[in-house]
């Protein structure tokens, strides 16, 4: 197993090298640089001023030299300084991580809490009305634009009923609020974002849980458990569920890129100051160092998600870790 992990990690090295090349070229080959973005509105900025800015950012050097400088720093986890406010990129990103992580973990828990029972029930009652209904529900869930669902919920709970806040993570005047009151206020703000980001996943996860469960309950050891007279509830909960849950780790790993993309959307809609919002605003401001750093970080996270998925696969099916892919 250790050998398997080591080989998978080694495979990631050339891929991540490619990721740095693409992230770099993507930003440096597209028209409209950070200098134009900052000076575009002021007519006074002379050619000389622009040249100075370019020098300051290191954009005057040949492109391959710029790349080498960037990668060398990257290897020491030095992501450079932001073009927009001169702050350390790593620090800028670090302060955005907690809220994004919190929402994604909460929504992941909600996804599993809803999808696992749904999947088990449809699998054990295959071909019933309930099963057909959840199947249609899954397709609707897949096909619903997240941002639209967010809009509808904002109209319903924020505007019509007026019971939930629709933007930010805290009310404007938090001064004088106790810890409990603050936590409650945050919880209220997080209900809609967590639900919205979990919604699409519930559909996919429950489908996956259903097929995983269907596979397991056809196995011989389930027949044995039934044959020796165990009650159906015990067969499902003790014998089937444990084996059916393992493949769910795979889908958790593979859902990482979707979660990252989703964060951009719901953080923008609900004005949540997380990683997704930082990414979107950094692109708009042509803040190269921040965007490149985040592209690399997102790619690393995706790769680790894949690794997790492969490991879960390898645990379930030993042939995979011996033969590789």
């Amino acid at each position: 197993m250790l050998f398997f992990v080591g080989r998978r990690l080694a495979q990631m090295v050339p891929i991540l090298f490619g990721v740095t090349v693409i992230s770099f070229l993507l930003l440096h080959l597209t028209p409209g640089g950070p200098v134009e973005a900052q000076t575009g509105l002021s007519l006074k900025s002379s050619a000389a001023a622009k040249e100075n800015l370019r020098k300051l950012y290191g954009l005057d050097k040949p492109i391959h030299v710029q790349y080498v400088i960037w990668v060398k720093r990257l290897a020491r986890l030095d992501f450079g300084k932001s073009f927009t406010d001169g702050r350390d990129v790593l620090q800028k990103i670090e302060e955005r991580i907690p809220i994004t992580l919190k929402i994604n973990i909460l929504s992941m828990m909600l996804m599993l809490a809803a999808a696992v029972p749904l999947g088990i029930t449809s699998a054990t009652r295959q071909h019933t009305f309930f099963d057909k209904l959840t199947t249609i529900g899954v397709f609707v869930g897949y096909s619903t634009p997240t941002f639209w669902l967010a809009l509808l919920l904002m109209i319903l709970f924020g505007v019509e009923l007026g019971i939930l806040p629709i933007a930010g993570i805290h009310r404007i005047d938090t001064a004088g609020m106790g810890t409990m009151a603050l936590a409650l206020d945050e919880a209220k703000h997080l209900i809609l974002p967590v639900f919205v980001s979990a919604f699409g996943g519930i559909a996919g996860f429950s489908r996956y849980m259903r097929s995983s469960m269907l596979e397991v309950i056809r196995q011989d050891y389930i027949r044995t458990a039934r044959a020796k007279g165990l009650p159906e509830g015990v067969v499902i909960k003790r014998h089937a569920l444990r084996n059916a849950l393992m493949p769910m780790v795979t889908i958790l790993g593979l859902s990482v890129p979707g979660l990252i993309g989703g964060s951009v959307i719901f953080e923008t809609i609900f004005s949540i100051p997380g990683m997704g919002q930082l990414y979107f605003s950094s692109i708009m401001e042509r803040d190269y160092p921040t965007v490149m750093a985040m592209l690399v970080i997102f790619a690393v996270l995706t790769q680790f998600g894949n690794l997790l998925a492969d490991l879960a696969y390898g645990l379930v099916d030993p042939r995979i870790r011996v033969a590789g892919r």
Binding site: V256, P257, G258, G261, L295, F298, T302
Partner: peptide, 8 residues
């Protein structure tokens, strides 16, 4: 495939 498609 290392980049989340939507991010790219």
């Amino acid at each position: 495939l290392s980049f989340p498609t939507y991010i790219l």
